[in-house]
Simulated scan of single mutants.
Amino acid sequence: MKYPTDLTENQWQYIKKTMNLKERKRKYPLLLIWNSLMYLIKTGCQWRMLPKDFPKWQLVYYYYIRWTELGYFDLILEKLRMKVRIKKGQRAEASLGIMDSQSVRWGNNRGLHGVDGNKKIKGIKRHVLVDKNGFLIAVMVCVANIHDSKAGLLLLRLLREELMNFKCILADAGYRGDFLDKAHSLYSYLVKVVSRDKEKQAKKEFKPVSKRWVIERTFAWFDNDRRLCRNYELLHESSENMTKLSAIKLLLNKI
């Protein structure tokens, strides 16, 4: 049975080439495994509730863990982002980054969680960095009670370990305090805080903040996938991988 989330032949060939998959005899083709993951992300179903049209959930989960450990999701995300940027007439590597956090309600009471006192949300926070198109570059998940300025430094360390260079990173007023100085002294990143217009805010008028609205749209893209609108993952690493799969699904539709 065909599902709307199934990969097209062109999309599958791109993934196959990027992962350098070799042809060999398998009980289930790897295309079915990828279709299972895309279905899981979009519908938000449990692993054990995957339709019988797909391979057994244990096999799908096995490949999910294996590909995570081999770093294939990061590789595919990076290659796809570069391809789409070049297609849009941009440089392959982004020079401008936009960072922000998204508080997500918990859906699994066994997973680590905290309370975001500002937004009154119990769950986790996704700290995300995107390019000017809103395409995901990096994601780091933590409990919701950790302040953005502290978690933001962990995200920047992740970027530095992956040797990513940016001329400037835009952030909101949540990344205050000595965050800007530490970002520059520890990781050599220039972070610029872009705040809302105080007059507009006092009059309760909504006006998108220049450049920063892009990452808000990215969060809206994530919420379109039911697996991400709540945090159903037990581990933060799994939450990060689900976010990357969602971004991969989005970029595959743009190649």
Score class of each variant (00 low, 15 high):
114 G>N: 04
106 W>I: 15
60 V>W: 07
46 Q>V: 03
29 P>H: 14
28 Y>W: 14
88 K>P: 00
23 E>A: 13
83 K>P: 02
57 W>P: 08
138 A>H: 11
86 I>G: 05
111 G>C: 07
97 G>Q: 06
70 L>F: 10
85 R>G: 03
78 E>V: 09
99 M>R: 13
56 K>I: 01
89 G>D: 08
139 V>N: 12
91 R>C: 00
94 A>T: 07
47 W>A: 02
40 L>C: 01
42 K>S: 05
22 K>D: 00
55 P>K: 08
31 L>R: 15
113 H>F: 11
140 M>G: 08
87 K>M: 03
122 K>R: 15
29 P>Y: 09
83 K>M: 05
90 Q>S: 07
43 T>W: 01
54 F>T: 02
26 R>L: 07
94 A>R: 10
112 L>D: 11
20 N>P: 01
45 C>E: 06
132 K>P: 01
112 L>G: 14
102 Q>T: 01
73 F>M: 03
64 Y>C: 00
82 M>W: 09
135 F>T: 04
79 K>S: 08
27 K>W: 00
62 Y>K: 14
69 E>D: 12
133 N>G: 09
51 P>T: 04
115 V>N: 09
133 N>Q: 14
66 R>Y: 06
49 M>P: 01
59 L>H: 14
123 G>R: 10
71 G>T: 11
38 M>K: 11
131 D>V: 12
93 E>I: 12
25 K>L: 04
132 K>H: 11
80 L>T: 09
67 W>M: 06
81 R>C: 05
82 M>H: 15
120 K>P: 05
35 N>T: 06
33 I>L: 04
80 L>A: 02
110 R>M: 09
112 L>P: 14
68 T>C: 06
117 G>K: 15
75 L>C: 04
128 V>Q: 10
116 D>Q: 09
